[in-house]
Design a protein around this nucleic acid. Sequence first.
DNA 1: TTTTATTTGAAATGAACGTTTCAAAATTAA
DNA 2: TTAATTTTGAAACGTTCATTTCAAATAAAA
Lengths: 193, 193
Amino acid sequence: MPKVEVFDKALVLEQATHVFHDKGYHATSMQDLVDATGLNRSSIYNSFDNKLNLFMACLKAYQTAYGNKVSNELEKATDSLEAIERLFKFYLKEIVRDTEDKGCLLVNATSEMANQEPCVTHFLNSNKEGFMTMLEELVQNGQQEGCINLDKSPKEYALYLFSSIQGLRTTAILIANKKDLQSIINITLRTII
Amino acid sequence: MPKVEVFDKALVLEQATHVFHDKGYHATSMQDLVDATGLNRSSIYNSFDNKLNLFMACLKAYQTAYGNKVSNELEKATDSLEAIERLFKFYLKEIVRDTEDKGCLLVNATSEMANQEPCVTHFLNSNKEGFMTMLEELVQNGQQEGCINLDKSPKEYALYLFSSIQGLRTTAILIANKKDLQSIINITLRTII
DNA sequence: TTTTATTTGAAATGAACGTTTCAAAATTAA
DNA sequence: TTAATTTTGAAACGTTCATTTCAAATAAAA
């Protein structure tokens, strides 16, 4: 009996994500989202309830898409240090691709909303935990393989790398020069070798 | 003949800055600013023209206040490495003081507005230049004094430190733990020693 | 005290905000 | 073909937005 949902939800999320990513949460209006998705207001509210909920769905979609890309990169590596190098290389590539200087949606959400919207804070904390777990495993394996030094614990190095990536993504908004960013990465990685 | 301005402009800027810092630019309404400053709308518009201009004045006030605090810290140091250590210690202190998890106003402005508002972008770029110049001098002196290694140029290390601070300020929004943040700083600084 | 310039208060401006409403269109199962 | 259910479109909802208006209050200069 039901008329079934006709639009491509993944595509709609992608389009909405791009607007949020470009303008931020508060500067994005529902009209912007209507324009970007081509959907009717009613359809958006039918599917996502409200603006914040749609934003949360965009955060999750962004996180998933990035997680998959990162996983693919890591699988190519033959050792854990190379995996970390590939991780940074991947971010550098993303930064260079980002000609609109949008930065990272998750980092931007941290700045704009982490101290204001509990559901965003919760999401970002979970994301941080997952990312930290991945980094810790990489560091631990790297230390066992002998390609990462033992000066600090996997947890400490993981947090250092996490913070470095956050810094890189913010710095890259102001500094487009690829060589400069590569230099930051080189110095960062030399620390753990 | 003129009736002279009666309110304390520095105080008003401080109050307005706090609101912008807490909620971000777009989430802050003129009503919020009226409430926070106690000023009448007309007085605000008389003195600052519009919301964006008031925000710019807040950025400048914040930058000046921070610059002075940083200068005071640096003067206490006996060598350039200690100066850099004091710089990071100062940021850590600021982070711990920031119980509302507001982060850094300038970093937040980079995330929220650098790709949208040309005047904000211009301000943040100037700020970056000034900060980089200071860091470069510190590194160069440190290298001449022999307390910072010669592996990389002053410019490269300065950018690395700049990016590290940006990362620290964003990471600290999600991670309140002082010990963890101190660990990040230790690893960062060990790199240049 | 009067004149002149400025600040203030309070209300009003029109536009934009997120969200709701509801009848019409659309689609599938019976 | 009819009945059931959902999506759609367009308009309207009340609220809030940044900004303007303007008369009244204020204060220094004449």
